[in-house]
Design a protein around this nucleic acid. Structure first.
Lengths: 115, 115
DNA sequence: CATCAGTATTCCTTTTCAAACATACTGAAA
DNA sequence: TTTCAGTATGTTTGAAAAGGAATACTGATG
């Protein structure tokens, strides 16, 4: 009688666009942190990620979405900041919705895997 | 009227086990090539991957499956070789089955994404 | 018109991780 | 008992990505 290890299915999903991967869970987290902190700088700190990279991700998202997901405020009181556009907020919601549907499906459909 | 880019959902799935990721599409391809060529060396060549790495992947798979997926033949005429065990063959089938079910589901469930 | 905090951007260092290299080991068969 | 092709394994190298570090830019506000 074999010792019966436990195996389960993991899945990672992302939105793809003509030029390649467009939006995955990493960028979604970044969006959430921008929403929460009001700036790219603080979002990056929160995630222990370099500002440089966070900024690049935002650039890419904005360029490749039909309409920008993040609105950036330059200069002024507090130096500026960043906040989500409506499209940005919708992106978060939509992503999690899709993810949940898929994960629920997987949980239902796959059990007792053996290798 | 916006230019309507096309977005779709991509998914990558793998089998997870206590110690982490256990079996994804990369290892499945390796299994298939071992099956096809009869050795790790030739499978690796086929995939333009270093023998060393292919061998390590096989080791890992074998250790972490309940029963080895690849049987290795050492020395002898032709130097030996490798072939799939029954468990190895089942792994391939099972993996693709699960993948197909999930991808079909995604295709049905998600269309007209907008960002 | 100086300040200030966040955005924008370049450059350089470090880390990581894959690929390449090198070298034993194995055992059937001639 | 030599050959041979594949397995087994350590070491080295190198390229790409991540991670700082440094610097300029922006504009509301006092």
């Amino acid at each position: 009688m074999p010792e019966n290890k436990k195996y389960d299915i993991k899945v990672r999903l992302w939105i793809e666009e003509a030029e390649g991967p467009f939006l995955g869970i990493g960028k979604i987290w970044l969006l959430e942190n921008i929403q929460k902190t009001g700036s790219i700088t603080n979002a990056a700190k929160e995630m222990k990620m370099a500002y440089r990279q966070a900024w690049q991700l935002v650039e890419e998202m904005n360029k490749r979405a039909e309409t920008p997901l993040v609105e950036k405020l330059l200069g002024g009181k507090g130096g500026g900041g960043a906040r989500l556009t409506e499209a940005g907020e919708r992106a978060i919601t939509l992503f999690y919705e899709i993810e949940k549907r898929i994960k629920d499906f997987i949980e239902k459909e796959t059990q007792n895997l053996k290798f």
